[in-house]
Design a protein around this nucleic acid. Sequence first.
DNA 1: CATCCAGTATATA
DNA 2: TATATACTGGATG
Length: 169
Amino acid sequence: MSRTQKIVARVPVKTEHGNFIAHYSEAGLAQLDFPSSRSAKQSTPDSVSSAQIGKWHKQTSAALEQALANKSIAALPPLDLEGGTEFQRKVWGVLRKITNGRTITYSELAVRVGKPKAARAVGSACGANPIPVLIPCHRVLASNGKLGGFSGGLDWKERLLTLEKGTLL
DNA sequence: CATCCAGTATATA
DNA sequence: TATATACTGGATG
């Protein structure tokens, strides 16, 4: 996928689970990365360069903390989903409707976007989700109860689910 | 129970 | 154009 988005700021978000990195474009929050490894190349994150981004970041931080504390998210900053196809945006839209602690299967998700046979494609769409946690891609399970996979590492998916469901399985 | 296969949207080589 | 995916349900051995 070609993210032609222009990231104007990368700001670290400190949480009890680590240092996430929020990427902002002119339109809003464009991407969120899990702590460590992957984006260890965070070349000196541009500091907050405008009041608007500062405001968005405040919302992002709050939302992330709430999500990681198993609380309902009060507000989200505008999301810049420019990089997604229509199909992917539909999938992400459905994901955002999944309430705290609830899970869904890839196939049901496929049904909800009008393509009951596209469970596999749904998996790809989830993987393309630029904003994990806030767009709960971790609440999607395979129909047989398996976790499937997760971009940020299966350990995260498990951790998040355990956190939300109290006890997984 | 282990494989295989088609159907589907995207990405990558 | 071919292959590989965060899949699934059905067919086959």
